[in-house]
Computed example of a mutant assay.
Amino acid sequence: MSFVIYDLETSGLEPQWNVPLQSALIHTDAELKPLGELSLRCRLPAHIVPAPGALLTTGIRPEQLEQAPLSCCEMLGVIARALEAWAPATIIGYNTLRYDEEILRHAFFTHLLPPYATSLNGHRRADLLTMVRAVAMLEPGAITVPLGATGKPSFRLGDVCRANGIALSEDEA
């Protein structure tokens, strides 16, 4: 058994209009010992207009969009090959099933790569956000979920990490 833990930084929120600009993937064994790692950045495709909010959230500066080492197509190809090479694994991330997977699937489709690469070759998928919510509901004392500015529980990755003794700034999250 192995895991592929990943995250994407994108040009915006809508899968049909946006693409990944950065990706980080770590392949680990069952004890979470790293077996492989990718940290990739790509140039913004000419037909994509990035959302200003996405650039503020990710910290990607406009000049970085032109200076990245890979084209979007090249980066997606590297990701697709890694997912194939690292199979079978459990593909996991924080809010990946509702966001990153949709962005990645649409980008793979539009670049003629296997859109269901995270579901093929024996891969399984899991989402840490869903797991954190389940643990908070079923075993409330097992994890601390902080309250946000509105007084409601905050499940933002940085907030949950810091509330549970993991020093992770919002930028790092």
Rank of each mutant, 00 (worst) to 15 (best):
44 L>K: 02
44 L>Q: 00
45 P>E: 00
45 P>L: 05
45 P>N: 10
45 P>I: 04
45 P>K: 03
45 P>M: 00
45 P>H: 06
45 P>Y: 06
45 P>V: 00
45 P>F: 06
46 A>M: 01
46 A>N: 07
46 A>I: 06
46 A>Q: 14
46 A>D: 11
47 H>A: 07
47 H>L: 06
47 H>V: 01
47 H>I: 01
47 H>E: 14
48 I>C: 07
48 I>L: 04
48 I>H: 02
48 I>G: 03
49 V>N: 06
49 V>L: 09
49 V>C: 04
49 V>H: 09
49 V>W: 04
49 V>R: 07
50 P>S: 09
50 P>A: 14
50 P>Y: 10
50 P>C: 07
50 P>F: 12
50 P>V: 08
51 A>G: 09
51 A>T: 05
51 A>S: 13
51 A>F: 09
51 A>M: 10
51 A>I: 01
52 P>Q: 09
52 P>W: 09
53 G>I: 13
53 G>R: 15
53 G>Q: 13
53 G>A: 12
54 A>V: 06
54 A>D: 07
54 A>P: 04
55 L>H: 02
55 L>C: 07
55 L>Y: 11
55 L>A: 02
55 L>T: 08
56 L>M: 14
56 L>C: 13
56 L>P: 00
56 L>H: 15
57 T>Y: 09
57 T>N: 13
57 T>W: 11
57 T>A: 15
57 T>M: 13
58 T>W: 10
58 T>S: 15
58 T>G: 14
58 T>E: 07
58 T>C: 09
59 G>D: 06
59 G>F: 08
59 G>A: 02
59 G>V: 08
59 G>E: 07
60 I>Q: 01
60 I>N: 03
60 I>Y: 02
60 I>H: 02
60 I>F: 00
61 R>M: 12
61 R>G: 05
61 R>K: 15
61 R>F: 08
62 P>H: 10
62 P>C: 05
62 P>A: 06
62 P>R: 11
62 P>K: 05
63 E>V: 01
63 E>A: 03
63 E>Y: 11
63 E>F: 13
63 E>Q: 10
64 Q>I: 06
64 Q>C: 08
65 L>N: 02
65 L>W: 02
65 L>I: 11
65 L>E: 01
65 L>T: 05
65 L>G: 08
65 L>C: 10
66 E>P: 00
66 E>I: 08
66 E>H: 14
66 E>V: 12
66 E>G: 11
67 Q>H: 12
67 Q>L: 12
67 Q>A: 15
67 Q>D: 10
67 Q>Y: 00
68 A>D: 14
68 A>L: 08
68 A>M: 09
69 P>C: 01
69 P>E: 13
69 P>R: 10
70 L>D: 03
71 S>T: 15
71 S>K: 07
71 S>Y: 05
71 S>V: 06
71 S>A: 13
72 C>H: 08
72 C>V: 04
72 C>A: 15
72 C>F: 00
72 C>Q: 04
72 C>W: 01
72 C>K: 02
73 C>Q: 13
73 C>D: 09
73 C>N: 08
73 C>H: 13
73 C>T: 13
73 C>P: 00
73 C>I: 00
73 C>G: 08
74 E>I: 04
74 E>S: 10
74 E>W: 00
74 E>K: 00
74 E>V: 11
74 E>D: 08
